Amino acid sequence: MTFSATTVLVLALIAAVVIAIGLWAYSTANRLDRLHVRSDQSWQALDAALARRAVVARSVAMAIASPVSDPARSEQAKQLSALGAVAERAGRGDRETVENQLSSALSAIDIGMLRPQLVAELADAEARVLIARRFHNDAVRDTLALRTRRPVRLLHLGGTAPLPTYFEITERATPAASTGLSVDTIRTTARIVLFDENDRTLLMRGNDPKTPEVSFWFTVGGGVEPGESLRVAAVRELYEETGHRADPASLRGPIWRRVAVFPFNGDLIRSEELFFALRVRGFEPRAANQTTIERRSITGHQWCTAADIVALDQSCETVYPYHLDELLAEAAEAASGSVDPEVRSIR
Rank of each mutant, 00 (worst) to 15 (best):
V8K: 14
L11V: 13
L13W: 03
I14H: 00
I14M: 11
A16W: 07
A16V: 09
W24F: 14
S27T: 10
T28K: 00
V37S: 12
W43N: 02
A45Q: 15
D47M: 03
A54M: 08
V55D: 10
A57C: 04
S59T: 10
S59L: 15
A61H: 03
I64P: 09
P67D: 10
V68Y: 11
P71E: 08
L80V: 11
L80R: 03
S81R: 08
L83G: 01
V86A: 08
R89I: 04
A90L: 09
G93I: 06
D94L: 11
V98D: 05
L102Q: 02
A105Q: 01
A108T: 06
I109C: 09
G112K: 06
M113C: 05
R115G: 06
L118W: 12
L118I: 09
L118G: 10
E121I: 00
E126W: 00
A127Y: 03
V129I: 11
L130W: 06
L130A: 12
I131F: 01
I131M: 07
I131Q: 07
R133G: 04
F135M: 09
R149C: 02
L155S: 04
L155N: 02
H156S: 08
G159I: 09
G159Y: 13
G159C: 12
A161D: 10
P162G: 09
E171F: 01
A173Y: 07
A177S: 12
S178M: 08
G180Q: 06
L181F: 04
T185S: 10
T188E: 14
I192S: 13
V193S: 07
L194W: 04
M204W: 00
N207C: 11
D208A: 02
D208T: 01
D208H: 00
P212G: 01
V214N: 08
T219G: 02
T219M: 11
L230P: 15
V232H: 13
A234N: 14
Y239I: 06
E240P: 06
A246G: 00
S250M: 13
L251V: 12
W256A: 15
R258W: 09
V261F: 03
P263Q: 09
I269L: 14
S271M: 03
L274C: 03
L274S: 13
L274E: 10
V280C: 09
R281W: 05
G282C: 00
R286E: 15
R286F: 05
A287L: 05
A288K: 01
N289L: 14
Q290N: 13
I293S: 11
E294K: 01
R295E: 11
S297W: 02
G300I: 08
C304A: 13
A306R: 01
I309R: 00
L312S: 02
D313L: 11
S315F: 04
V319H: 04
H323D: 15
L327Q: 15
L327M: 13
A329M: 07
A331F: 08
A334P: 04
S336M: 07
G337M: 01
S338F: 11
V339K: 15
D340Y: 06
V343M: 15
V343H: 06
R347C: 03
